[in-house]
């Protein structure tokens, strides 16, 4: 018998034994999650892509004819306006979240760790109370004869009630209330990791605090900033219950538009094409994120 043959025989033997020993456990352990991800995540998403190229039939169902009309429809000025406004408000929310969240995250990160944990907990607790109820509170405060207007009237700051509700501004406030914790957490994590000796070195080399902040602190906490941007921008973009609770019907964003296509007017193919657009924007953000993160990986580590 030549040696290579015996080697081959051994290999097949090992293979069958391996099969017996590994396949069954692998199937029971990795099987459920694989099944779940395929059936509940990947296939439905592919189906969304698929029907975005279909037509709507007369009864709100799907007519299986390939068409690009759904994507052409998006280009109508009415919808472009909604998309543009959604992006604008989401961006505004993101920027304000970072501007408010960064100093607070910095404040928390510079506290002793026990106190910092408590302060972070305080940031998270509102997140555990129903978001909608909180939005409703803002709604109540902002009513024409609500608490805020009453207060301003009595203080003599205004002569007639302000139109606080149903504006873009109040929608942004609502988005801020629901998104701020998501900005603060990653910012805190990256600031907390920042080695204090970098700041000392910068100061030692003659940089004033403002310069140190711009040239050392910001660049070194960039991953946290980008993560915060992602965590605020993407949900803000697809959000529909905030405009619904605070904007009445007057502030129409892409999220509400998609929801209406599915739950009200039953134009699923058009709704699908809108959500594909949303996905594309998300993917662009993700791509930017990985680019920055990768840059970071390569050059910092």
């Amino acid at each position: 018998m030549n040696p290579s043959e015996s080697q081959g025989e051994k290999n097949t033997l090992a293979k069958t034994r391996n099969l017996k020993r590994n396949t069954l456990p692998a199937l029971t352990m990795a099987g459920p999650v694989t099944f779940w991800m395929l059936v509940f995540v990947l296939l439905p998403l592919l189906y969304v892509v698929f029907i975005s190229f279909m037509r709507r039939d007369a009864f709100g169902g799907i007519d299986y004819h390939v068409t690009l009309s759904n994507y052409v429809e998006i280009l109508q000025p009415v919808y472009l306006k909604v998309i543009w406004k959604s992006i604008k408000l989401a961006l505004l929310t993101t920027v304000i979240c970072i501007l408010i969240g960064y100093p607070l995250a910095y404040y928390i990160a510079r506290k002793p760790s026990k106190l910092a944990a408590k302060l972070l907990m305080l940031v998270m607790i509102p997140f555990w109370t129903n978001t909608l109820v909180r939005l409703y509170s803002i709604n109540l405060m902002g009513q024409p004869n609500g608490f805020l207007n009453q207060f301003l009237l009595r203080a003599g700051l205004i002569s007639k009630p302000l139109d606080i509700l149903y504006s873009d501004g109040i929608v942004v406030v609502g988005l801020l209330i629901s998104m701020l914790p998501f900005a603060i957490l990653p910012l805190y994590a990256s600031i907390e990791k920042l080695d204090k000796s970098y700041l000392e070195a910068s100061s030692d080399l003659g940089a004033r605090p403002a310069i140190t902040f711009l040239r050392v602190t910001i660049p070194l906490t960039l991953p946290g900033i980008v993560a915060a941007v992602m965590l605020v921008f993407i949900p803000s973009l697809g959000m529909y219950y905030v405009p619904e609770a605070l904007g009445g019907g007057k502030v129409m964003l892409i999220g509400s538009l998609i929801r209406n296509q599915f739950l009200v007017t039953k134009n699923w193919p058009f709704g699908a094409s809108l959500s594909i657009l949303l996905l594309l924007i998300t993917l662009i953000m993700l791509w930017l994120y990985t680019r920055i993160a990768k840059l970071d990986d390569m050059e910092v580590f």
Binding site: V41, P44, L45, Y47, V48, M230, I234, P235, L237, G238, Y240, G255, I258, R259, F262, G271, A272, S275, L278, L279, T282, L286
Partner: peptide
């Protein structure tokens, strides 16, 4: 990472 609404409708 995807917007919740997309997961919801799918």
């Amino acid at each position: 990472v995807i917007p919740e609404i997309v997961l919801g409708l799918s």
